[in-house]
Each structure stands twice: as structure tokens, then as C-alpha cells.
């Protein structure tokens, strides 16, 4: 059912303001459907007289339901909420289904952040996020929002947070957003603070187990290399592990280009030039030929290193 305002007594004091297109050129004239056009006319009118009221909340809700990407409407709604001291819990209760209807919208996340910040409590947010991620487990806005929650409410050492991340990785080991969140919890969000040896060992073990599940998955390999580098361990620490997936003596049994890539680095560091070349050659010709130019470039670096030595 479309909703109109011209015959609603609650709005009889308002004369809607038509769209000012600036000029009458065809590029500027904007056609709306009637309902949207009328609602926008009333919004322009209340904005012009700086009205902040319950009915403005209703009007903005109506417009957002038709077009959630109209950022001006969100902005005016946020102002209205604070001007009339509206219940922020009610706002969250309304936002939940609205966000689920408009998964790709990002204005909604900024709005939510403002409200939760004012409420000063993350209660209920984890459940809401879980519902959102059921729709799209890699939704960038949702993960960014989760990071904000962790920072805002100091959840870095909350065991539940790490456990939740694990469950997300478990349900899809290729979810790079979940891996990034783990990095954020363990290393990235801690302002350069060193991490303990036990944590390093735990993380290496965790990433290795994930690689074993899907050796051609980029996410845990990136994570593994990141942890080793962050802990300032030599990459040769990972040599035996990489060999499990890429034994160059048996090219038919190689099942991870990422393992080969890592081996090439390890061999180069150990100055086993021939082995490194072999790994890069296999990548360029057989396991990742679409990036042959890149692998050949890496080979040329070996040559240069050889000449320099």
C-alpha cells in the first residue's frame, strides 16, 4: 500500500516543496514515482523549517524503506533522533530488519555506529551480526563494523570473540574476512604490541590445520606467512610444512601453488638457487601459468642475486 501525505490530517500544516532542478535541461529534470516524489516534497518542507519530531521519524522511515541509499535522509533522521531524545533502543529494533532488507547499503552502518556509540553498550550486537553474516558471510561493512565494536568496547581479549571468529572460519575456511578479523584480534589491532611465543605457536598451528583442509586456499597461507614474519622467525621454519604439499621431486603430486611459492622464497633465502628456479618454473609453466610473467620476474631476481654475490 503506498502511503500519501496530502490527505493525512497530521500533515495538513505542511506544503510540500517540489524538487528544484536548477535548470530545466533534460539532464536535470528528475522523474519520481508519485509516492516517493510526494514523500520527498514533505521532507524538503520539514527540513526547510528545521522540524524535528516524531512524525519526521515516520517520514524518514518511509523514505528509507523506498530508497535507503539517500544519505541526506539518514543524516536528517540522526539529527531528529538526538533533537527529540528518541529511544535509541527502539531505533536499533527498527534498524535490524531494515539492514537485513538492504544488505549492500552502507549509510545504515554509519548510522548504527552512531547509535550504539551513544548507547554505550554492545549488547545484542553479536547476535545481530551473526544474522547479517548468514546472508553474506563476507559482507565488508559488517566486518568493518565488528572491528569497530571490538575497538570501541575493548573486546580484544574477550575469548568469545576469538571463538566466534574460529566458528566463522570453520564454516568457510576460505572466508578471508574472518581470517582478517582473527589477525585484527591477535596482532593488527594491538598497536604494534609484541605477541607472546605461546600465541605465535598457537596461531601457526591453527593456520597449518586450515591449510591441510584446503591446501590451495590463499587465506591461511597469507596468515601463516604473516605470523611468521611478525614473530621475526626465518621463513625456513615453514619448509617441511610446505614440502608436504609440494614435493618437487614428484610434480604430479603437487597440490598447492602457494606452497611452491613459499618454497621458492625459502630456497632463495637459503641460496639454493637451482631449487628456487625449479619451483618458479613449475609455477610459470604448470601450476599458475596465468601469472607466468610474475614468476619469470621472480626468476630474474635470482639471476641478479647470483651475479651480485
Amino acid at each position: 500500500m503506498p502511503k500519501y501525505y496530502h490527505d493525512d490530517p497530521a500533515w495538513s500544516d505542511i506544503d510540500p516543496l517540489p524538487q528544484d532542478d536548477g535548470t530545466l535541461h533534460p539532464l536535470a529534470a528528475i522523474a519520481y514515482t508519485e509516492e516517493y516524489s510526494e514523500a520527498m516534497g514533505y521532507l524538503r518542507a520539514v527540513m526547510a523549517k528545521n522540524e524535528f519530531s516524531e512524525r519526521v521519524l515516520g517520514l524518514t522511515e518511509h523514505i528509507i524503506s523506498m530508497n535507503p541509499a539517500h544519505y541526506t535522509v539518514w543524516l536528517y533522521r540522526a539529527k531528529t533522533l538526538s533533537q527529540i531524545n528518541a529511544s535509541l533502543r527502539d531505533e536499533i529494533a527498527w534498524l535490524n530488519p531494515t539492514a537485513l532488507k538492504h544488505l549492500k547499503n552502507y549509510q545504515i552502518w554509519h548510522h548504527r555506529q552512531t547509535i550504539i556509540d551513544a548507547l554505550d553498550s554492545p549488547d545484542g550486537e553479536a547476535d545481530f551480526i551473526a544474522t547479517m553474516l548468514e546472508q553474506d558471510a563476507k559482507n565488508y561493512h559488517v566486518w568493518s563494523y565488528r572491528q569497530w565494536l571490538v575497538k570501541r568496547f575493548g573486546l580484544f581479549d574477550d575469548e568469545e570473540e576469538l571463538r566466534w571468529t574460529e566458528s566463522m572460519i570453520e564454516s568457510d575456511v576460505r572466508n578471508n574476512s574472518a581470517w582478517n578479523h582473527r589477525w585484527f584480534l591477535v596482532v593488527g589491532g594491538r598497536d604494534g604490541q609484541a605477541i607472546g611465543e605461546d600465541v605465535v605457536a598457537r596461531e601457526i598451528d591453527y593456520a597449518k590445520r586450515a591449510v591441510r583442509k584446503a591446501p590451495q586456499n590463499q587465506c591461511p597461507w597469507n596468515y601463516l606467512k604473516g605470523i611468521v614474519r611478525h614473530a621475526q622467525l626465518p621463513i625456513s621454519t615453514l619448509k617441511d610444512f610446505a614440502l608436504e604439499f609440494a614435493d618437487m621431486r614428484r610434480p604430479d603430486d603437487i597440490y598447492s601453488s602457494h606452497a611452491l611459492d613459499l618454497l621458492a622464497d625459502i630456497y632463495a633465502e637459503q641460496e639454493s638457487k637451482e631449487e628456487a628456479e625449479r619451483a618458479l618454473h613449475l609455477l610459470a609453466t604448470r601450476f599458475d601459468p596465468i601469472r607466468a610473467h610474475y614468476w619469470n620476474y621472480r626468476k630474474s631476481l635470482l639471476e641478479q642475486a647470483g651475479t651480485a654475490a
Binding site: Q19, D21, T23, L27, T72
Partner: peptide, 27 residues
């Protein structure tokens, strides 16, 4: 696209403070 028409639209999005909105009437 006719240059004049494009410019007329662009200027109709320009606010007094020097910012542009997405369309006339947008922040």
C-alpha cells in the same frame, strides 16, 4: 553528451560552501 547540459547539471549540484551533492537537493 552536450557540454552545456552537463555543466548546467553539475552546477545545479554545487552548494554555496563549495561541496557538491549527488543531485539537486542532496547534501
Amino acid at each position: 553528451l552536450a557540454r552545456e547540459g552537463v555543466l548546467a547539471f553539475v552546477f545545479s549540484c554545487l552548494h554555496e560552501d563549495g561541496g557538491f551533492g549527488a543531485a539537486p537537493g542532496h547534501d
